[in-house]
Design a binder for these strands. Sequence first.
DNA 1: TACTCCTAAATTGTCAACAATCTACAATTC
DNA 2: GAATTGTAGATTGTTGACAATTTAGGAGTA
Lengths: 243, 243
Amino acid sequence: MTFQALESQSTAELLAEQIRDAILVGKLHPGDRLIEQELSESFKTSRGPIREAIRILATEGLVELRKNRGAIVSAPNFDDVLEVYAMRMSMGSIAVTHASQLSLESELDLGKVTKKLEAMRTAVGGNANRMISLDLDFQSALIALGALPRITEMFEQTAVDIGVFVRFLGIKYDDSDHKALISRHEKLLKAIKVGNASQAIEIWNGHIQTSVREFMKPFSEVEVNELFERPLMNNLFEMENVR
Amino acid sequence: MTFQALESQSTAELLAEQIRDAILVGKLHPGDRLIEQELSESFKTSRGPIREAIRILATEGLVELRKNRGAIVSAPNFDDVLEVYAMRMSMGSIAVTHASQLSLESELDLGKVTKKLEAMRTAVGGNANRMISLDLDFQSALIALGALPRITEMFEQTAVDIGVFVRFLGIKYDDSDHKALISRHEKLLKAIKVGNASQAIEIWNGHIQTSVREFMKPFSEVEVNELFERPLMNNLFEMENVR
DNA sequence: TACTCCTAAATTGTCAACAATCTACAATTC
DNA sequence: GAATTGTAGATTGTTGACAATTTAGGAGTA
């Protein structure tokens, strides 16, 4: 029998995780300063690893680094939402296409992604935020099927972005139809399985558009109108369905 | 009159630049180890900034980081080429679309991108590698027109990737028709200027496809055939034109 | 008051020493 | 001889001290 090689994370990654969570959970607010000394005292470590953790968060865009002046938690805005969803749409199209083709050539391991979908089924009707989180997990697993390392990683990054939006823009997926969501996912998986790339893309793009629509629900008409006046929206998302 | 705030790079960034160049120029080869002590001695600095520089290069994918075992210069492969070009194609489509729309709304500043194009005109008929580099510059400036920070940054990253490919896969743009290249770029800029997004996308995608084709020229038929058997290629690039 | 200049405190940047971990190779066992 | 174990050297990880820089606030000036 063989064991799976365990590779532990570095201290810096562990620290970055903690700080990231603190931001995502709202313990740290946009504009807050991250002071190395302070953090090193509360984490009971030296400044070195803390520094490294802050750099990690900086490349993720969660904090802004100003030379000689430390790091501050950065603030997202509406434009970012549109850009991130646009990226998820097109990176997803590539990954889903690739996965469809891989499925035709060799057998594709749908184990992980099926598991995520199962988790979503179990959560139907429950907490909305939990469903968002599970949906993001499902999507990540789906995109990983494409086995394209850069795209997979970039997609993972946009999931962090969405976490930020959910927290700081007050975005919610309330009232979304969980069952419809899941049945769409099932169709998507099926399309990939039989190698129907164009159908898979269609479903994928539809899902992203629905996500954007759900995101926008809680906002006042004025805000939404302003948002949909932005150039990106016109082209990538079906604005007429939303208003 | 106002001066532009000059923001000097941090030591770590400076060091990363030096090491990056060393890799891109072939002084460091894939598999080579980056030993902090060694580097700190030759750069006459301590290990701290060197460490930071290595982490920067790691996020760029130029080196691979192994916990407690240091960093090694990473080796690219053909799959990476396809993925990177696929990303450039679709991120470019978004940026170019956005730029077209921005052009209709407000006036778009084409100054920088025009300048890059001018530089390409001057270089026509000269060194092929220089033309690659200028073309990459032009493309970056073009994508920056979209004013989408994440996409712009990601695109910049793929330019580094291509630098790696050029160096380590022996890829060349020899024999490419520089004049045709430039006239295509002119058409693309015009399309953006008049807000014709779909035409701009078409030209953009065509350019990426041509780039891939040029990339592949130096390789033996066997290699190219093998390459074009890979799933990604079938769908995203017009393989029948290439063989 | 509004402005500049100056100084002290806070904070980041850098460094060299020490601790922890890994690698390569010799010693040991079967 | 092959496989395993032990060990020294090399290398990364961490730390606390010091240097450089920025920030905030007060004194001085008009």
